[in-house]
């Protein structure tokens, strides 16, 4: 009950303070709005890049062709050897029987049927489709598979997809760095603005300390104030994300670069990003005030 009363008074005081120091509050809110808009853009970009990368990664497999004379037990043995390689996902090794493959190809076109049926033996090889954990080590893994006894050749879609993924990985890392940097900048900006409001209230803090108010209780209204400023500051960025992304998605038809890179569907993605923005705004605001008020609570 006691804590509840203190909490109630603090929330009341925090709201009072936001309105009493209106111009300073507007300054805090504006700076967090601007940085959170940038954070929103960075989050949307990194979310989409991440999505596109994982879509592309799904298509990246190593094709392993076996020697023509392998026996069934050789095949099992080769499979075990492949699955023991470090970068390979054992559950994602698909065996493709040459005869099955042949019949599938025959179904696909009459020309292929004509060629394949003229031959006495099946020219196709038994093969494996292998997925990897880290696409960046695709070529090394392929080399390792080639060394296995009984493997005729191993190939992967050397080329565009791999390069795309490498570029995307870089973009993703850069956007994460940008997001983190922006969050830190926002925290310091809010912290400095709240410092100004606190400076004008340092007498109040001093007196509170002198009459026996615990540091926690002194800090609470400022934490709430930071929380309120952060939340208000995140409203515009959140709305911009929701409306802006839906609009962009519709205009682009859900893809960038004619169907190569799919965009994430707006719902629930925009809700998730807006929620993240609000939580970020609130946390950053609270951290900013915590930092600002700390100075006045020391002797």
């Amino acid at each position: 009950m006691r804590m509840l009363r203190i909490l109630k008074r603090n929330i009341r005081d925090a709201f009072k303070s936001v309105f009493r120091n209106f111009s300073l509050s507007i300054a805090s809110i504006t700076c967090s709005t601007i940085t959170l808009i940038l954070v929103a853009i960075a989050l949307v970009v990194s979310g989409n890049v991440n999505n596109a990368t994982s879509e592309l990664k799904k298509d990246l497999t190593i094709e392993v062709f076996l020697n023509l004379d392998v026996t069934q037990s050789d095949i099992e043995h080769i499979k075990t050897q492949i699955s023991n390689l470090p970068n390979v996902k054992p559950e994602n090794i698909n065996y493709i029987n040459a005869d099955v493959w042949k019949s599938e190809l025959i179904k696909e076109s009459a020309d292929i049927e004509a060629i394949l049926t003229t031959l006495d033996t099946n020219p196709l090889r038994n093969s494996f489709e292998v997925s990897v954990d880290d696409v960046n080590e695709l070529s090394e893994t392929t080399q390792n598979i080639k060394k296995i006894n009984g493997v005729f050749d191993a190939k992967y879609g050397e080329g565009k997809a791999e390069n795309f993924i490498k570029i995307f990985d870089v973009i993703e890392k850069v956007t994460i760095i940008i997001v983190v940097a922006l969050i830190i900048v926002t925290a310091f900006l809010i912290s400095n603005t709240i410092k100004l409001t606190i400076f004008s209230r340092r007498n109040e803090i001093e007196i509170m300390r002198l009459v026996g108010t615990s540091n926690t209780v002194i800090r609470l209204p400022f934490l709430f104030e930071g929380f309120i400023l952060g939340i208000i500051g995140s409203i515009i960025p959140a709305l911009l994300t929701i409306y802006g992304y839906v609009l962009a998605y519709d205009k682009l038809g859900g893809y960038i670069y004619s169907n190569i890179i799919p965009l994430i569907k707006p719902f629930n993605f925009v809700l998730f990003v807006s929620l993240a923005l609000m939580v970020l705004g609130a946390l950053v605001g609270m951290f900013g005030s915590y930092r600002a008020v700390r100075k006045y609570l020391k002797i």
Partner: peptide
């Protein structure tokens, strides 16, 4: 009252 409020009295 300030001093007492901060201590959470009713």
């Amino acid at each position: 009252a300030f001093a007492l409020e901060a201590q959470g009295l009713k």
